[in-house]
Design a protein around this nucleic acid. Structure first.
Lengths: 338, 338
DNA sequence: TTGTACGCGTTATCAC
DNA sequence: GTGATAACGCGTACAA
């Protein structure tokens, strides 16, 4: 037999059977232009016959780089993480790249050490950083230091374009709140995300922008902060709905908190959207499955992830990739005119 | 400098600086027992000083196996996929293994070819198969043929223990429906999952078991089939609630469909759980965030994934890992006595 | 207990 | 155009 002991044919098997040197086989694999057509065909025939597939580990060793791209995240939102994974996959489909995932714990004191170990051990081709940890500059610096190329995804541009794919949450929220204003709402509550999240800060700015440009005043009694969870959404909703006068609409900085606000409203007998309009952010599965379906802002997450992955793996194509994405308002049934 | 040109120190650098052969360094790395303590300390000091980390690609080449485990899935449920990823990670934490993910398209005619290419190219250490594609015997056979060890996760035992980690959906559903019966319900509707899903079949069996042992008759007019989506849950709910007499409780084979049933009930003015009790399956994020919070069955998904990963990477520990898990009924607020 | 020589499967160099 | 030969970084016989 031509096959090696462990079953997989190697480049040597191919070379021997094709009667050429292994370098020639290598040339065929790597599509070297300077190659006799006949030689190529002969080699390709043997490759097909043997079912030869190059060993990625050997390639990685010789090339001093591998074909693994990492996804580092600490994200509470499963839908988003999976959307990102799908986006990356669509970028690496039909390439030799594979996706390695690494969830980390943002709150752990040795998060950076964890990542360092991971990066040191795996020697990845490059990594994608997801918010909220993508907002951590120390992490980006660590990648630099370790010689790992990285691309950050985020809600605002916080790195050079080669390292960044960003949405514009501020603008998106301003649009969403503007939409409420367009429906006649004048007293609009706001549930902020947790301090330390850049996205939270950006969304708060968007809220202020919208009020400003409509000549509406900021009123702290109808503003609250949550930490992106359902429970804190309930608490925030209770606070805002206890204000006097009551807001006729509330923008919550993510869908989970919006669901919490909905919950709070319902438990004091208010109906949505008749008595209260609500808008969320993210367009997670929850948004479409609660009642009434939630009007929300959708991150173009897959497209962003795909662009980010391309930036990582293909410097040429990367030039054509946008670094900036717009979020859409998804109109469902949780908003009504005043 | 002691470092190689590209920055990373190699085993040779360590050997030279420590004044030993690289084989000795290799022994230190691999914790060979027959080693002079002094030599070990000396080498370890140099390793620490240099920040040396073995190159995984070179290791993989020499050992003829790598340290990547794959997760192949085609799962509509983001929460579950992420739960599995977390579970796997907890098993490989502090090991040199990394997790490669590969979403596939169950409906695509060349799904098997896709997987074959993926497996051929990446030469993974082993793979984990998630339902529903874990139910595909051809896939398991393909892994065997390619010499890739695999572990399947599923709702019922459909392979040898070394290749399988299973819950017992039939039993879990029987328990849940039994709980409804215990609350006095006698007319209990059922929303089945899609044909072709083994989990759907198992859950249906559990429903029948429960009715049987309570001496209740099967009534096709209060049974419907959906495909695990919210929308089909609505349709199924509409059908069941149009039956006469109406069911006083409905078991839906997953949470999304249960949310759909809830939606359908509400839109004809019924309140839950006063007029209708509902139980779902999976305990996804939706279950806790809809109103009322959904009583549901929870797959111990992380524990299962962890056990599966251990079976894959550690034959010794594997013996202590359970192959069979029980699902818990999570009691929330969507069930009330008749 | 430690070292030498070689193999793992691929790519790169530089002749021919 | 093509082929020896030497890397790439690490593990394993076998010897010392």
């Amino acid at each position: 037999m031509a096959r090696a002991k462990d079953g997989k044919p190697t480049i040597n098997d191919v070379a021997r059977l094709a009667g050429v040197s292994k370098k020639t086989v290598s040339r065929v694999i790597n599509r070297s232009p300077l190659l006799n057509a006949q030689t190529r065909e002969k080699v390709e025939a043997v490759i097909a016959e043997l079912g030869y597939v190059p060993n990625p580990q050997a390639r990685a060793l010789a090339l001093r780089r591998n074909f693994l791209i990492g996804l580092i995240h600490d994200n509470p939102n499963a839908q988003m993480v999976l959307g990102v994974q799908e986006g990356i996959l669509s970028a690496i489909r039909d390439t030799e790249f594979a996706l390695v995932v690494r969830p980390v714990n943002r709150r752990s004191p040795d998060m950076l050490d964890d990542v360092r170990t991971f990066l040191d051990q795996q020697r990845l081709f490059g990594v994608l950083l997801l918010p909220p940890i993508s907002e951590n500059d120390a992490l980006a610096q660590l990648c630099d230091e370790l010689g790992v190329t990285y691309v950050r995804m985020g809600s605002v541009r916080l790195d050079e374009d080669v390292h960044m794919v960003a949405s514009n949450d501020r603008e998106a929220v301003a649009k969403a709140v503007g939409y409420l204003i367009g429906q006649g709402h004048r007293r609009i509550g706001f549930v902020a995300g947790p301090e330390g999240f850049r996205s939270a800060a950006e969304r708060a700015l968007g809220y202020r922008d919208a009020l400003d440009s409509a000549g509406l005043a900021i009123d702290e009694t109808i503003m609250a902060e949550g930490n992106y969870t359902f429970e804190t959404g309930i608490a925030a909703g209770e606070k805002l709905l206890a204000a006097s006068p009551r807001p006729s609409a509330i923008f919550a900085s993510n869908d989970e908190m919006a669901a919490g606000v909905l919950h709070a409203a319902r438990s004091i007998g208010m109906s949505v959207p008749e008595d209260l309009s609500i808008i969320g952010f993210d367009d997670t599965a929850i948004a479409a499955h609660i009642w009434p379906p939630l009007t929300t802002v959708r991150w173009p997450i897959q497209a962003m992830a795909k662009a980010a992955a391309i930036k990582l793996i293909d410097p040429v194509e990367a030039r054509d990739q946008p670094s900036h994405f717009l979020s859409d308002l998804i109109e469902r049934a949780s908003v009504a005119p005043v």
